[in-house]
């Protein structure tokens, strides 16, 4: 069994101990002993995706600005510092000037400071509305997907009814239920609209999980039903829901802006909010489009940021891309 071609004995002898050779081979292919979980490998792919990086940069910037805005803003956003330059008769607003790079609004408040501080409200509305919507959807979707039968039918009929009403109309109706509109009613209205979307999505992927082999394997193993739902079905169903949550954040910000724009938001304009600023600018949009341009631009960019992140996460979590 000696080789017809033999060279230096520098290498470890090949014959004997194929196991060692295979182990060495496995080690050389760069696989360590610590396993790489699905989430970790998804993150690894995300980090290299430029779409994700752009979206994430926008979001990080947005969150940082929102958190630091009280210090970033040069002026009190509700102080009418430039009131003297406002002339209703001649339809004039304060132009850009030193200390006020974007000028003032129609009552003489600093536009840049209002934009910066306004991000806070927008972030809060988006996050709270999404979290509440997600929580409601998780409960309903898990119930329907895990229990099935009449619970499933009942939950899904309710969800169908809610989905059949246009979302903005539904949000209006909910907002209008309250005698006095406030930031809280906006959050509640936007959240309620999201619940059926999350519920249906989660229920669908839970049902797919219920028929999957690994859930059957857990049943065959005699794992308790509750553990099957919470250890196997739910974690494996969450991927699309998380993606949806990111996309919903964008929608929530737009919806909240729409409600504020239409006067169903916080009437107290001493606390600025982008949608409300946009609404306030509609009277002067012909003469002073910049008053509408800035808040609208902010809404679009932030919504785009969340959408980019959501889309790239959808790709990263797709099991087909797993390696």
């Amino acid at each position: 069994m000696t080789g017809s071609v033999s060279r230096s004995g520098a290498r470890p002898p090949l014959l004997g101990g194929r196991k060692e050779r295979l182990d060495a081979l496995a080690a050389s292919s760069g696989k360590g002993d610590a396993g790489v979980s699905l989430a970790a490998s998804a993150w690894r792919r995300l980090r290299r995706n430029p779409v994700f990086l752009v979206g994430a940069a926008i979001i990080v910037l947005f969150v940082v600005v929102a958190l630091l805005s009280p210090w970033l803003a040069a002026h009190d956003p509700s102080a009418r510092l430039l009131e003297g330059q406002v002339s209703r008769a001649r339809n004039e607003i304060p132009p850009a000037q030193e200390g006020f790079p974007l000028g003032g609004d129609q009552v003489g408040r600093d536009l840049l400071s209002r934009l910066l501080v306004g991000s806070q409200q927008t972030l809060m509305v988006g996050v709270f509305a999404t979290v509440i919507g997600l929580a409601g959807g998780l409960v309903l979707g898990t119930l329907a997907g895990a229990l099935g039968g009449w619970v499933d039918s009942l939950v899904m009929r309710v969800v169908d009814v809610m989905l059949s009403i246009p979302s903005l109309l539904l949000a209006f109706s909910i907002g209008a239920l309250f005698p006095r509109p406030s930031q809280f009613t906006v959050i509640l209205a936007v959240a309620t609209v999201q619940i059926p979307i999350f519920a249906r999505l989660l229920r669908g992927s839970m049902l797919a999980q219920r028929g999957s082999d690994h859930v059957l394997a857990a049943r065959a193993l005699g794992v308790r039903p509750r553990a099957i739902v919470f250890r196997h079905m739910l974690p494996n169903s969450l991927g699309p829901v998380i993606v949806q949550a990111t996309l919903v954040l964008a929608v929530a910000i737009i919806d909240a802006a729409a409600l504020s724009f239409l006067g169903l938001g916080n009437p107290d304009d001493s606390i600025p909010e982008w949608g409300q600023m946009l609404g306030g600018a509609q009277n002067v949009i012909d003469s002073h489009p910049s008053l509408a341009f800035w808040p609208a631009g902010c809404i679009i960019v932030v919504a785009l940021g969340f959408t980019l992140v959501g889309e790239s996460m959808r790709d990263a979590l797709d099991p087909k891309n797993r390696r």
Partner: peptide, 26 residues
Amino acid sequence: ADNIPWDHGCAFAPRCPRALEACVEI
């Protein structure tokens, strides 16, 4: 999946019961 590149020998060598030293070199 347990193979080596053809440039470094025989791709089948890691699984081969008849592998010689030459098989992972030439």
